[in-house]
Nucleic acid binder design. Structure first.
Lengths: 159, 159, 159, 159
DNA sequence: TTTT
DNA sequence: TTTT
């Protein structure tokens, strides 16, 4: 009924842009989000690594402007999908389907640390089922990149 | 750096309360959250099933007052933990660690539909690592309920 | 750059639907949101009275289904506008422009307390610059409703 | 019942730190948050100027590290308070009481644009009823800073 | 498999 | 394994 997520973190690697057979752009990346505490007596602050999926125009903007290490804000919804793996076991995948992404560091920043948080608007890319593997209940793992376009029919895209 | 989730949905079953060896209360339940669209030509609206973890005082309040089917609002943060399963394969688990839970239907509601959204405050239970299986990086699956108290040391609790 | 609000509270009165001269529907209501604490030694829990504005299709759905007292979830953005009052003094008005409203109590609920949180979807009404005031406790209405259509040109509508 | 705000914007001026008669630190600042659209045919993107209030430890951290122009993320709740002005008219003030502030640009950034989004943690300052006004565009300050400590009794502090 |  |  209501499902809203807001994250600020850094990309663990460059985003990956792919296209569905129907030609719809999908970009995925992982955000490292530091936890608000240090646990277990360890000095090092831990992070959660959260998978983000964007669709369509927003996917292409993210692929163009985001890079590994960039500080980024993401707004979206949690999606849980599942698929049966090659051993016939059901696997659950949780992702954040982003509909708003804010670039908190501009292109010449992050890497060489020369800029301070300019901002490229990437809003309004629409939601998406986030599954690049088929129907929504039982799917292939979209994260296995086999080089082929991901197999998803237009019917699976919720927009 | 910032990690905030707000959900409204219904419990798929009664919450489960357990205790760590150190005596810390942990309650878990799953929220069914309807998606904002119908996909794939199917008429039936789909839902995401999202695992929620609460700790301490909030855990006990949830165990006392929440029941299967109840409409509930949850505020918290996304946490991703992993553990190696019995085949030595790394499994990733994503949960929402709740720090605020709102009961949108009171006790005599939901089941027999007699009330209108009264509200029991369950705020401020503190966060938690959400792992009931050991250290934070490599853990046992906390969702396997073996009847034994979950093995987590006090050091793993971030509060 | 990012502006997100999520509220759960009860309507202080029935929503008011009006139309701009260009025929765009605008609905306004006030949400009473209990504070998470009791202050000043007083036993009574205080509330914040927050003005909500909805536009277009969402405005009409809200006008049709929301009523005084209903428990409601609102998602939107904070907007601050200003105008000069009749004494030539600048007045600031803060509102939440909602783009998603969830009815947490169905029609036969709330008033007579007979139901438990059924849910009418009212998502996707778009944002808007909005106006008029609110109906909270001892609040004077900065935009007195004089029966005339509200004066806002199409240029003021951000969509 | 639930009241959550997340904002990303830039400070319109340096934050102002003051103390209640009881010695509690309060810091206020205004965040300029760009709207997600351009309205009225105007090319210039508009912004909302939103007053932020922080208390206690968080207030002091904000006063120490935030400066005019800095890109900042704020998490908190909307609070509406009112007072009678010198003409005996009731005035309503809406503020965001922050409980989490993230510095998205480090000290040597923003002004001279040399850094990229380092991050000083300022979490956990608690809520508060707050007061004073803001520093937005043409805004008169409802709580003129007369150099005297602000008059708020301990009873008004909700913690 | 992880970012600063 | 799922709720209404």
């Amino acid at each position: 009924m209501l499902n809203r997520v807001i994250l600020i973190g850094r990309l663990t690697r460059d985003p990956e842009l792919r296209y569905t057979p129907a030609g719809v752009a999908v970009t995925q990346f992982t955000l490292a989000v530091d936890r608000p505490f240090t646990s277990g007596g360890s000095k090092e602050r831990e992070a959660d690594f959260i998978n983000i999926v964007t669709w369509r125009q927003l996917a292409e903007t993210c692929a163009n402007y985001l890079r590994k290490g960039r500080l980024t804000a993401v707004e979206g919804r949690i999606q849980v999908r599942n698929y049966d793996n090659n051993e016939g076991k059901r696997v659950y995948v949780t992702e954040v389907i982003a509909d708003n992404v804010r670039f908190l560091e501009s292109s010449n920043s992050a890497g060489n640390r020369e800029d301070g948080g300019s901002n490229a608007n990437a809003s309004y890319g629409g939601g998406g089922s986030g599954n690049r593997g088929g129907g929504s209940r039982e799917q292939q793992d979209p994260f296995i990149d086999d080089g082929k376009p991901i197999d998803i029919s237009d019917d699976d895209l919720p927009f």
